[in-house]
């Protein structure tokens, strides 16, 4: 398999990580917590989507999944996170770890261990006749293919980026979000209803998680670990981009997606399981060299 094909895979993976990472990083920037249960929001979205897709056409089912995950996100926030908003980042992180454990097992009890699949048809576009440029065991160009599913994923991601940009720069709520992300106290002084903004971030993050969950489910399958298996990559992407910065998260997601895909290409065949470890390795190196990430603020304590 050529390098071009792996770059295609990397862009696709980067796209759904990016959609989720935006939600994750906005919770971080505005609610000021690392939400480790966020992967479960993706799983909820994927399950709502797969159930809805049984009776509705897929695009409508995806919308239902986004609404469902958004509702779940705000409900969970009201129940678990809003009451302890003032206690600081560590208790909230620990709470989210406990909540993730609870959600994962509730879903496992309800849905069982078997995987479900979206019933979709996918067209494949082959690009043959690309010259091969072998360097060692790796082919720098090579034939590649693109499926219509991949195009849908990348298209959704681009649409999300455009809508998000418009939201953050053109609407009052979006501008208030950016203000709160910079300084919560000053935003409150200026008359912004901070709790209302927090709630809208929870809803937005849930909606994005729902969409990412459905896309992930279409690409792979829907099971209890669908979202959990992505949480560390989402986290790595968000921190790589500079925690709290949505634009940084987009850049970080594509870096992570490409690194994972390319490491799969370069690693020996029996070690492809290591590709996710490579993503965390990138994360640790980033924390070591530039903990503020690509676009973010300082996170060093000392």
């Amino acid at each position: 398999m050529g390098l071009v094909q792996n770059v295609v895979f990397g862009l696709v993976q980067g796209s759904y990580i990016a959609i989720a990472a935006i939600g994750f990083t906005m919770i971080y920037g505005i609610v000021n917590m690392i939400n480790f249960a966020y992967g479960e929001y993706l799983t909820i979205g994927a399950f709502v989507g797969v159930l809805a897709a049984g009776v509705l056409p897929l695009p409508v089912a995806a919308l239902v999944a986004m609404v469902g995950a958004g509702a779940a996100s705000i409900a969970l926030a009201k129940l678990f996170f809003t009451p302890i908003n003032e206690t600081g980042p560590v208790p909230m992180l620990l709470t989210s770890i406990g909540l993730g454990l609870v959600l994962r097992n509730v879903i496992r009890l309800g849905a069982g261990r078997s995987a479900r699949y979206y019933d979709t048809e996918s067209a494949t576009y082959e690009f043959a006749g690309v010259p091969e440029v072998p360097v060692g065991s790796v082919d720098l160009l090579g034939n590649f293919f693109v499926t219509s599913r991949m195009l849908v994923v990348v298209g959704c991601a681009v649409a999300v980026f455009a809508i998000l940009h418009a939201l953050l720069t053109r609407t009052d709520v979006g501008i208030a979000m950016r203000a709160m992300s910079d300084s919560e106290d000053l935003a409150r002084v200026r008359g912004i209803d901070t709790q209302m903004i927090r709630n809208s971030v929870w809803v937005l993050a849930g909606v994005l998680a729902g969409l990412a969950g459905v896309l992930l489910g279409i690409q792979t399958n829907v099971s209890v670990t669908t979202g959990f298996s992505q949480i560390l990559q989402i986290l790595a992407a968000a921190i790589l981009g500079g925690a709290g910065s949505p634009y940084g998260a987009i850049a970080g997601s594509y870096v992570i997606g490409l690194v994972v895909a390319l490491s799969t290409a370069f690693l020996p065949a029996d070690m492809t399981g290591l590709s996710s470890a490579v993503a965390f390795l990138v994360l640790v190196v980033v924390l070591l060299v530039k903990p503020s990430g690509i676009a973010g603020e300082e996170v060093r304590e000392a």
Partner: peptide, 20 residues
């Protein structure tokens, strides 16, 4: 690598180490 980071980032770095 991570003791100079904020508390919650240390949590993530150690968690990632365990996963690696």
């Amino acid at each position: 690598t991570s003791l100079r980071l904020r508390d919650d980032f240390l949590a993530i770095a150690t968690l990632a180490t365990a996963e690696i």
